[in-house]
Amino acid sequence: MDVVVCLRRVPFTQEVDLEIDKGQRQILAENLAFVLNDWDNYALEEAISLKERTKGTVTAITVGTEEDEEVLRRALAMGADTAIRIDSEGLTLDPRNIARLLARVIRGLRFHLILTGAQSDDLNEGCVGAMLAEELGLPHASVVNKIELGEDVLEIKVELEGGIEEISTIKLPCLLTIQTGINEPRYVSVMGIRKAAKKELKVVTIEELSLDKEALVPDVYVERLFYPPETGGAEILEGDPHIVAEKILRILRERGVIS
C-alpha cells in the first residue's frame, strides 16, 4: 500500500509563556522550540507500519519553509521513502490554501491512502484533512483511532465523544485523519535523522504548481491575538510542600472525602 502522510511543524508550547508580537497577529516564535505536531507523529507511525505490513511506500509532505524540513527528515529517518516540501514562500496560509497546495502535489502521486493528523497543536483548526480529501474527490473520515486492512477497503474506528466509537468501512483510495493513541510512535535517533539527510528531499514552488500567489486569498483571516480574559481563577496555595500538603488535607477534610 502506498501512503501519503501530511506533516506540520509546530512550536512546542507546554510550560512555555507565549508572547504576542507587535503586529498582534502572530506569536513571537524566536525563543520557541519546534516539534512535529503530535497528531501527525501518530499519522506518520501509522503510515510507516502500513508500509511495512504491505511492502508499500510512504511519501511525507509538508508545506512550509526550509526550517520545516526538519519534520521531513524525521519522517525519512522513520522509514518514509520520499519527502516533499511545498515552499510557502513567506505566505501565511490558511487551512483552505494549505489543502489547495497539498492537493496539487498529491494529485500527481501514486497512492492508496492519505493520512493527516486530526488537528494541529498550534491553531487547532482540524480541517486540512477533510478539505484536502474533498479537493481530491476522496471519501474521508476524521478522528480515526484504528485501521484494519481489507481487500480494497479499510475497516476503521472513529473516536466519538463520551467513550463511544463508530466502526465503519471505507473504500480505497481514501483520506483518514488520525487521532493520538492509535499506535506507539517509534523512537527516532539523532543518528537516524543524520543518516536520512542523504535521502532525497524534493522542494516544489507555488509557481511550479501553476498557482498564482495572488489567488491564494485566505478564507480565514486572523484579525488579532489576545491573552485569555482574566477570570477569578484558582486560589493559589503557597508555601513549602509540607505547608501546602497541610492546606490540601484541610480542604479534603472540609469536603468530607477523607477523615
Binding site: 491553531l123 486569498v217 480565514v220 483571516y221 484579525e223 485569555p228
Partner: peptide
C-alpha cells in the same frame, strides 16, 4: 491564547 478571526 485567543484569536479573533474574520472570513472572506
Amino acid at each position: 491564547l485567543f484569536a479573533e478571526v474574520s472570513l472572506r
